[in-house]
Design a protein around this nucleic acid. Sequence first.
DNA 1: AAAATAGTGTCTATGAGACACTATAGT
DNA 2: ACTATAGTGTCTCATAGACACTATTTT
Lengths: 263, 263
Amino acid sequence: MYATMARSKKSPVETASVEPGRDSEAAFLADYDVSKFERPSVAVDVVVMTASGGALKALVYKRAEHPHRGRYALPGGFIRMDESLEQAARRLLRDKAGLSDVFIEQLYTFGDVRRDPRARVLSVSYVALVHAEKLANHAPKDVVVAELVVPFAGETGGPVEGHTASGELLPLAFDHALILGMAVKRLRGKLDYTPVGFQLLPDEFRLRDLQDVHETIRGEPVNKDSFRRRMLASGLIEATGAREADVSNRPAELYRFIKRSAT
Amino acid sequence: MYATMARSKKSPVETASVEPGRDSEAAFLADYDVSKFERPSVAVDVVVMTASGGALKALVYKRAEHPHRGRYALPGGFIRMDESLEQAARRLLRDKAGLSDVFIEQLYTFGDVRRDPRARVLSVSYVALVHAEKLANHAPKDVVVAELVVPFAGETGGPVEGHTASGELLPLAFDHALILGMAVKRLRGKLDYTPVGFQLLPDEFRLRDLQDVHETIRGEPVNKDSFRRRMLASGLIEATGAREADVSNRPAELYRFIKRSAT
DNA sequence: AAAATAGTGTCTATGAGACACTATAGT
DNA sequence: ACTATAGTGTCTCATAGACACTATTTT
């Protein structure tokens, strides 16, 4: 889009001294040889996160091929020449995790020279947030929903461990422990000023569920009273009028988010 | 580092079922052919920002070559195979802007398929924050310190215009208006919870200077009383004991940041 | 009735905004 | 004395945390 705009004849931004030179630019482009410069490989890796049972979780799968065969890696793959980074992330999410229509956001680009033993490979990472049930229903069976053990408080950052539900440690491939750590850091940072729960809860939920999500992400308890007041005053959620059923205590009011963001 | 760790024999993380297979992995790597997959070019572009005279500014330079000859671009260039992304950013900053020992941080990776007319080129962007004087002293003469005109409030995001000091619009190359917009958005976001002024002010400054920086970044005034109280209570700055001189009014106390972060 | 969790009302401490006031330099 | 900006003291309002209290379900 911007490339197009830049080449249009009378774009309103062409006020100062831009040399038009359209023919010579065209000639230049025709002659341009991409292979002049060495290029790295570029992969997109997606952190598919959810929060349930008091734990932050992310989807990993056991690598069947070298390098790092047997270790656990994030769903990812090399980008194609005809897709944008986000399109690549969505494709990989669909092909490797069976997920579509989820919230995704670019996280960070990892580019250490030796991060992949094969060759120079950059990883442009994305975070996807999904409901726990969606992950349970749609994920192929060779994937593992790893529980994350976060060794840092607040938004300090650092590598994060993955465990099975039974507590076994899952050795992570490449620098994926760092990518997971960055994802947790980002999620914690977003918590204060964006309605993160939108993506991590079903359409109807109890305030307690929303509080659980916040506490799981932060890794520490939040004040119940203050949390309720803030959420109700935020204007982002509304009561459905319905209440939960079949509980052995006073049933909680059910709420929904006012504007469910598209994808 | 991670590649090394992953291949070490008895890493403590190898608790679950990792297939060792060191020989076969070595064989695999020896056979691995990088050229199997098509690869994009990867550039690093650096937004060198400063705040002075009530305006946010960024360094751009007029392109002498195609594509987008005559338009203004961020300092940038293709990454080399033996340097990390941050190393590339620092190299470009040194070579193209004459700057070293400045704060830099990765911003975002732009990957639209058509963002560069030559070929598929990803841009991993970085933000550098420097004092206004440092920029004035060190910048080569083919660069322009463009004043940014930010058409959005808060952290909405969107493209940003560059102007000369005299108000002339500088047409920007590629998607660099978007990259600048992202940089402004990020800077505004950091303002609330990190001492951004550290990087944008000289060693000694008046509280008014710090307030000016905050107002310039936010694009709107801040409450003077509350701002003073917050800054003094933050524990991040301390009085030097000295006062400004040669002013025709009550001279202000000079302050310094407690811990000047390294680079 | 007992147990368990949902939800309300109220008090207090803290921090932001508003504003009046005092302080100190040059002219 | 006058001007301009620095810096202080105080009042009010909004919000977070603490805590006691009430409400509503199952067993």
